[in-house]
Amino acid sequence: MQIRRLTSDDAVVYRALRLRGLREHPEAFTSSWEDDERKPLAASHARLQDPATTFWGAFDGDALVGIVGLERLRRPKERHKAWVVGMYVPVEDAGRGIGAALLQALCAAARDEGLRDLLLSVTDGNAGALALYRKAGFAVVGREPRAVLVDGRFLDKLQMHRALD
């Protein structure tokens, strides 16, 4: 398995894996499959070229088997922080350490950039993701009730934080 930063050359495989995650796990993401599926491939190219956002991919040969992103905050007083976004590993690849390897690469790069804090949100009840994030050093610091509405159900999001220094 190889972990590397994604480039706009990876837009096709990135888009396909992202859409799969949104379709199969709508409760895990604030983005929706319906909205993202309508966006052109150019939107994925643009996202992978945005200097404020970096994505990493896990590759098994040529197959993309996991993704995670880092969205830096832009306001001067918040530039020491970034959000971990878009984490997804397909069920058939779970248990191989892919999520942990992606988070390790993201945290190392964030630290190298001088970032000091990472934030993320995880849907309450997603025990696997919560365990992964805790193992990577994140701690729950809050809860947003009714954060997302999926199929007529309100779901809470747990807010997590990890200091890098």
Rank of each mutant, 00 (worst) to 15 (best):
C107N: 06
R134S: 10
H161F: 12
E34S: 09
D9R: 11
L130F: 11
T7V: 05
G97A: 06
E27I: 08
I67S: 02
L41D: 05
V13Y: 02
A94F: 09
L119Y: 06
V141N: 09
V91H: 15
K77W: 14
V150R: 07
A43W: 13
L120K: 00
R15L: 04
F138K: 06
R38H: 09
A109S: 13
L115K: 02
S32H: 02
T7A: 07
R96M: 05
A136I: 09
A101M: 07
D117V: 15
T53L: 10
E34F: 07
V68P: 04
A82T: 02
V122I: 10
R5H: 08
P145I: 13
Y133E: 07
S31N: 06
G86M: 11
W83D: 08
P40V: 07
S8K: 06
D112V: 13
E37V: 15
P51D: 08
D165F: 12
G142R: 08
W33N: 03
F59C: 04
G86W: 00
L22C: 01
A101D: 04
G57P: 01
V148C: 13
I3R: 03
M160C: 10
D35G: 06
D156A: 10
P26R: 00
D156V: 08
G125M: 05
L19R: 01
L149E: 12
A109W: 03
W83F: 07
A105P: 02
N126W: 07
A109C: 13
D36N: 10
V13S: 06
G128F: 05
Y133S: 07
S44N: 04
E37A: 15
L119G: 06
K77P: 11
G125W: 05
T30H: 13
S121V: 14
L73E: 08
D35W: 10
Q104M: 09
M87L: 13
L164P: 04
K81T: 08
A28N: 06
A42P: 04
P90D: 08
D60L: 15
L102F: 04
D50L: 05
L118V: 05
H80E: 09
R116D: 05
P40C: 04
L73R: 09
D165G: 15
S121I: 12
D117W: 12
G97L: 06
G61K: 03
G57T: 05
G125H: 02
S31C: 08
I67E: 01
F154D: 14
D60N: 14
D35A: 08
G142I: 06
T30R: 14
V122E: 00
R38T: 13
T54L: 11
R79N: 10
L132K: 00
I67L: 09
T123I: 02
F59R: 02
S32D: 02
P26D: 04
L155T: 12
L132S: 02
R18K: 03
G61Y: 06
R5Q: 12
M87A: 03
Q49I: 01
A139D: 14
F55V: 03
A16H: 07
Y133K: 10
D112S: 15
V68D: 04
A52W: 11
